Amino acid sequence: MIHARDNRVSTRAFQTALHLVYPPRCTLCGDQVDSDFGLCGPCWRETPFISGLCCDACGVPLPGEDHGEAEFCDDCLTLARPWAQGRAALLYKDHGRKLVLSLKHGDRHDIARPAALWMARAAAPLIDRRMVVAPVPLHWTRMVKRRFNQAALLAEAVAHDLGLDYCPDLLIRSRRTQSLEGLGFEARHATVGQAITPHPRRRHKMAARKVLIVDDVMTSGATLSAATQACFSGGAAGVNVLTLARVAKDA
């Protein structure tokens, strides 16, 4: 017990000294802030966090008050989502879009840490303590080009914050597909359909368990649908989805 207490004291002293030399900075503007992995006041106020009533299937914000009952957006009332519930931390606009693009294309891996904290908070209604967290996978050719999977960075940090099991290769991208950018709803689903499959040596990790699939952005839901179907083919008992940002029609 004494050694453990001494170690904690040493760790706090080291962190204090580190902050004196390298004070924490706002993730967006770089101004000094009070704690690591945060936003300054102005950037926080200008970041489109999703709060209050939202669609229980995709996380898009809805008008009205949250009375604890499941509500759905027009798209999710019309479309049969294969997953059970979904949430997102931000709207994909303004600072929300900047954060996603900086993580995805700007090599800003540091964004994954605060983003995971926001995502974990949004995911509270989705969590089953036995569930396993998995990222939407990249095809190996795209992984070689990009060098990292932003969904995996987010998924690992979210799993850590929520105290859940994490499996980075629960799913694999078995077929390379074209970019979905600019494609319509039907074209997106046709392009990514059957492109994601369960890893043949990881099926036991999802068998009879719920899976939380993590990605950076949800637009039409095509990629998340393909990943969900892959989980069910691997024996998952249920699937929920979580993204850093959600594209909204009126955003």
Results as ranks from 00 to 15, higher is better:
Leu117Lys: 12
Thr228His: 02
Leu126Ser: 10
Trp118Ser: 12
Ala116Lys: 09
Leu126Glu: 01
Ala4Ser: 02
Ala236Leu: 09
Gly221Thr: 07
Asp94Met: 09
Ala151Gln: 02
Ser102Leu: 14
Asp36Cys: 10
Arg188Asn: 02
Met206Gly: 09
Ala207Met: 09
Thr47Met: 01
Val9Pro: 05
Leu242Gly: 04
His19Ile: 05
Pro168Phe: 00
Gly41Lys: 10
Phe72Ile: 13
Ser102Ala: 15
His204Ala: 12
Asp31Gly: 14
Glu181Tyr: 05
Arg121Val: 07
His105Asp: 13
Gly163Ala: 03
Pro61Asn: 01
Arg176Gly: 01
Leu171Gln: 04
Asn7Ile: 10
Leu183Gly: 06
Ser102Asn: 15
Gly238Thr: 06
Asn7Arg: 15
Ala208Trp: 07
Lys210Trp: 08
Arg142Ser: 11
Gly59Glu: 00
Arg130Ile: 00
Pro200Glu: 02
Asp6Pro: 09
His204Gly: 11
Lys249Thr: 14
Gly52Val: 10
Asp36Phe: 04
Cys58Tyr: 09
Gly193Ile: 01
Thr219Pro: 02
Ala152Lys: 03
Gly182Ile: 00
Gly64His: 10
Lys93Gln: 08
Leu90Thr: 06
His3Gln: 13
Arg113Asn: 09
Leu90Met: 04
Ala151Phe: 02
Cys43Met: 11
Leu77Ala: 13
Gly68Ser: 08
Met1Phe: 15
Asp169Val: 11
Leu77Phe: 08
Ala187His: 07
Met119Ile: 10
Asp74Gly: 15
Asn149Phe: 03
Gly59Leu: 00
Asn149Met: 01
Thr219Gln: 01
Thr243Gln: 04
Val192Thr: 06
Ser35Asn: 12
Gly86Val: 06
Asp36Pro: 11
Phe185Asp: 08
Arg12Pro: 00
His95Trp: 05
Ala155Arg: 03
Cys58Thr: 13
Leu170Lys: 15
Glu46Arg: 06
Trp140Asp: 13
Leu212Glu: 00
Asn240Ser: 14
Leu171Arg: 06
Pro137Asn: 03
Ala112Glu: 08
Asp169Asn: 12
Asp128His: 03
Ser10Ile: 03
